[in-house]
Computed example of a mutant assay.
Amino acid sequence: MNGIVIIGGSIEAFLLARAVPGARVILPAAERVTRRWPCPVDIGPVSADVLRGAGAGVVVEAAHPCDTQTAFATHRAAHALDLPHLQLVRPPWRATRRDLWVPLREVRQAAEVIPDGARVLVATGGEALSGLRAMRAEVLMRRIGEVSGPLPLRRGRFLAGQGPFTIHDEMRLLRKERIDWLLVSNAGGTGGWPKLAAARTLRLPVAMIDRPRRPGGPRVQTVKEALTWLSAHPV
C-alpha cells in the first residue's frame, strides 16, 4: 500500500486506480455495475476512522459528481486528519444552441416546468425520488441493473436497463415510450451523453438539474491532472 486512498463512485476513480499501483479504494456504496478494480476495495461511508484504518496519507475524492454527501464527508474526514485532499470531478455537460434545456437548481423545480400529464424519462438516481412527488407527470425512471419493487410515485414505473447505451438505443427508447421530456442531473461525462444527443435529435426538452455545491479546496477535472497533483504530494 502506498498511502493513496481514492474515494470511488465515478469512472475517473476507476481509471485513476488503474494508473496508481498500490492505491486503495473506498466506495461509499456497492456498485450497481461491478468493476474489476485493480486494488483493494472497501465499501461504506467515509469517515476519519475509515481513512485512518485504510492507511491514508493522501486522499483523492472521485465520487459521482452529484454525490456531494460523500464529497463533504471526505472533506471533513481529511481535514480532521490533516491529510492532503483533492477532488477529481469531471466537467459538466454544456448545452448548445441545438439543445432545448431548462436549467433547474434542484429537482423539486421540475414540477414547475414539466407540464401535467407529460411522459418524462428521469435519469437522476433514486435519491431524487422524494423531490418528484409534486409532479403530475408520468414518470419513467431509469434504473441500472435489476429493479426491486414498484416506483413509489403516483404515476410511473422503473425502466430497467444495462448500459452502455448508444444514441440509437436512446432514440428507440424515447420513441417507444412516447417521451415528452427528460429530467437529468448534470453528471457530465460520455456515459450519459447519448440520451441527451437523442433528445437533441428528436427536439425534446430536457430539464437539467445543476450540480449541488461542493466543498472548497483543490479540484481537477481529469485523471491526468490528478496524477500531476499526486506527484506533487508524495506520501
Rank of each mutant, 00 (worst) to 15 (best):
I4E: 07
I6K: 14
G9M: 09
A13L: 04
F14V: 09
F14G: 03
L16N: 11
A19V: 09
V20Y: 14
G22A: 02
G22T: 03
A30T: 13
R32D: 10
T34Y: 06
W37Q: 05
C39D: 00
P40E: 13
V41D: 09
V41W: 00
I43S: 04
A48Q: 10
D49L: 15
L51N: 06
L51E: 03
A54L: 14
V58R: 14
E61L: 08
A62E: 10
A63T: 12
A71P: 01
A71K: 02
R76A: 15
H85Y: 08
H85C: 15
Q87G: 06
Q87F: 14
L88F: 06
R90G: 09
P92T: 06
R94E: 08
R98K: 11
R98Q: 10
V107Q: 05
A110N: 00
E112M: 10
V113C: 08
P115S: 02
D116C: 12
A118D: 10
R119N: 07
V122P: 01
T124M: 15
G125A: 03
A128R: 14
S130L: 12
S130A: 05
A134Y: 00
R136W: 03
A137V: 05
R142Q: 11
G145M: 00
G145Q: 00
V147L: 01
R154Q: 12
R157S: 04
A160G: 14
A160R: 08
G161L: 00
Q162Y: 10
P164H: 02
H168C: 07
L173S: 09
L173C: 06
L174T: 07
K176Q: 13
D180V: 08
L182S: 09
S185N: 15
N186M: 02
G189C: 00
T190H: 15
G191D: 14
L202R: 02
L202G: 02
P205F: 02
V206W: 13
M208S: 09
R213T: 11
R214K: 10
Q221C: 13
V223A: 15
K224Y: 12
K224M: 11
A226C: 04
L230K: 02
